[in-house]
Write a protein that binds this DNA or RNA. Structure first.
Lengths: 112, 112
DNA sequence: CGGCATCCCGTCCGATACTG
DNA sequence: CAGTATCGGACGGGATGCCG
């Protein structure tokens, strides 16, 4: 594939974007979550269209699983896969990272 | 800001994209690197235009630093900042993650 | 409830060419 | 050597509305 295959690029590719990290974070801590429950829990600002698309991508990459109860009204749950759990380690660190706080100050440690 | 501020989203925002992880990885392990040296080391497939832009973004976010020797011909070096080093922890994990290998097999552990 | 259809915009990524 | 200029395509993200 690439000459300098670090693994970073691939991992980043899978998790990247504005929402996937947050979705995974929720599913990593909640067992099984329904669509709208997930939608609201994330921050209420993700549209169903976007959430739907991101979920599909995560499913395609094997990080999460879709469970359709085929009832009426519909009930669908999403769940992290064992594979998806491998993201827990670095998402955890990202969360703990002081990066967030620093960025929020909009003025990063400058040595100018 | 957001209701569910996990820190993940912010961190992801800063590191996201096709190249920034790789750039950081190189700079985390190399002290100071010159533009074309960096360009070649990454995999030779990043155009100077893209590399330039990604570097600018990383500088803006305070992750790396630009050192211009103001010589002729030009010599410029890029260096990770202490702040940028906070990415080392999860980039390290991403690299180690089996995710890369699994994805490469194109067929992820399916329980269908 | 759990989506998909449409349309739209801004950003990402890239090829090519050129410059001080 | 270290970039910038220009152009273009693909993708991400979102608003709105509709459907079984």
């Amino acid at each position: 594939m690439k000459e300098v295959e670090t693994g970073i690029d691939i991992t980043l590719e899978v998790v990247c974007g504005k929402w996937k990290g947050l979705i995974l974070w929720k599913l990593l801590h909640e067992e099984a979550v329904r669509f709208n429950e997930l939608r609201r829990s994330i921050d209420g600002d993700i549209s169903s269209r976007i959430l739907s698309r991101e979920l599909h991508k995560l499913i395609e990459d094997g990080l999460i699983e879709r469970i359709d109860y085929e009832t009426m009204p519909p009930k669908v749950e999403y769940q992290i896969t064992p594979y998806g759990q491998t993201t827990a380690s670095f998402l955890e660190i990202m969360k703990k990272s002081e990066m967030a706080d620093i960025i929020n100050e909009e003025e990063v440690e400058q040595k100018v």
